[in-house]
Computed example of a mutant assay.
Amino acid sequence: MKVHELPQFTALQSAADSFKSDEKLHLRQLCSDSSRCAGLVASHESGDAKIILDYSRQQVTGETMETLFDLADKVGFTAKRDKMRAGAKINSTEGRSVLHHALRMPKGYDYSCNPEGKAILAEVHEVRDKIEEFTNKVRSGEFLGATGKQLKNFVCIGIGGSQLGPEFVNEALKADAKAAKAAEGRNLRFLANVDPVDFELCTRDLDPEETLIVVISKTFTTAETMLNARTAKKWIIDGLAAKGVTDAGTITSKHVIAVSTAIDKCVDFGIDEANIFGFWNWVGGRFSVCSAVGVVPLSLQYSYDVMSSFLDGAHNIDEHFFNAPLRENIPVILGLLGL
C-alpha cells in the first residue's frame, strides 16, 4: 500500500481541511490552550548545552501529532533510519548509501553497525587530518603565496550544494564570538554565479598576492564552476605578473586548491596534488557542508578547531536523531511537521 493510501495519511488530510475551515482550530485559539502548548515541546541536552523545540505555534494538536507518529510507524520509519545508519543504499535513484553522518563521527567511534564502518571512518579522518594540517599552515603563515605574503583572503568557487551549505554556516559563524575572533583579518567569499559583475564585486577589494582560490567540484567538470575557476586563475596570474612573478605554474600551485575526486583534472589545472581534498559519492550535495566541501574553506576562515567543534555538535544531534524515541526526537518532529 502506498503512503497516500494509508488511513493515517487520509486522517491527516482531513485534519488539514479542518484547520482551514474550523475557527476553533485557528492558531489564535490553539495558542490560548496552555495544556496543548505545554505538550508540544521537545528538548535535547548534552553537557552544558540544551536545545528546546517549542512547536506549539504550528497548526497541530496532540491528536495530529499522534497521527503523524502513527504514520511514521506504519511506513517503517525507524527501520529505514537504521538502514541509512548502517550504510544500506537508500538513495535508490543513484544506488548509493547516504552517510553524511559518518563525516562527523569522532576518531575511535564504534561504527560497527555498518559492515564497512571502520574503513569509512579511517578514510574520513585521513581527509580531516589533511585539512587540519593544511589550514593550520595557511593560517599560521607557514604556507605562503607566491610573493611570500600570507594568504588571508579565500574565494570559494562552487555551485549548488558546494556553495549553499558552506555559505549558510559562514553567515552563522559570524555571530559566534570564538569563531569571529578566529576570523579577524581574514575574508571568505563565495562565488557561484558566472556573471562577470559578480566576479568583480567578489574580488575588487582583494589583493591577489594574499588570495587563495578554493575550487569545489566533485568531477572538476561543472561548467559554471570551471568558468569561474579559470577566471579566478587568470585574475591571480595577471595580478602577480604585475608584481614581477611570471611563472604561472608556481602561482597556481600556491594560490589555487581544490575539493574534488578528479585528481588528474585538478593536477592538469595546475593544482598541487597535496592540496586536493577528497570526499565520497555517499555525500549528497545538500549535506556536503560537513565534508571537505565545507570544512576546507570554513577552517581557513575560522580555524580547524572551530570546525571540529561544529562537527562534534552535528555528531551529537546525529546520535539524538538515531537513538531518541520519535516523540522526543527533534529532527523527526521537524520532519513530520513539514509533512
Rank of each mutant, 00 (worst) to 15 (best):
H44T: 02
D48C: 06
Q58H: 14
E66C: 00
E66I: 02
D73I: 03
K74G: 02
F77C: 08
T78K: 13
R81G: 02
K83Q: 12
M84Q: 10
A102R: 00
M105I: 00
S112Y: 03
C113R: 08
V127C: 14
T135M: 06
F143S: 07
L144A: 13
G148E: 08
F154I: 03
C156V: 09
G160H: 09
G161T: 08
Q163E: 12
P166M: 03
E167S: 14
V169Q: 08
V169N: 05
L173G: 11
A179W: 02
A180G: 11
E184S: 15
G185V: 13
G185M: 12
R186C: 08
R186N: 11
R189M: 15
D207F: 04
T211K: 05
T211A: 07
I216M: 12
S217N: 06
T221H: 07
M226A: 06
N228S: 09
K233C: 04
I237C: 14
G239Q: 03
A242M: 09
D247S: 06
S253N: 11
A258V: 09
D268W: 01
D268H: 11
N275G: 04
F277A: 05
S288I: 06
S299W: 06
S299A: 11
L300W: 13
L300G: 10
Y302A: 04
V306M: 04
N316V: 01
E319L: 01
N323Q: 13
V332D: 05
L337N: 10
L339E: 04
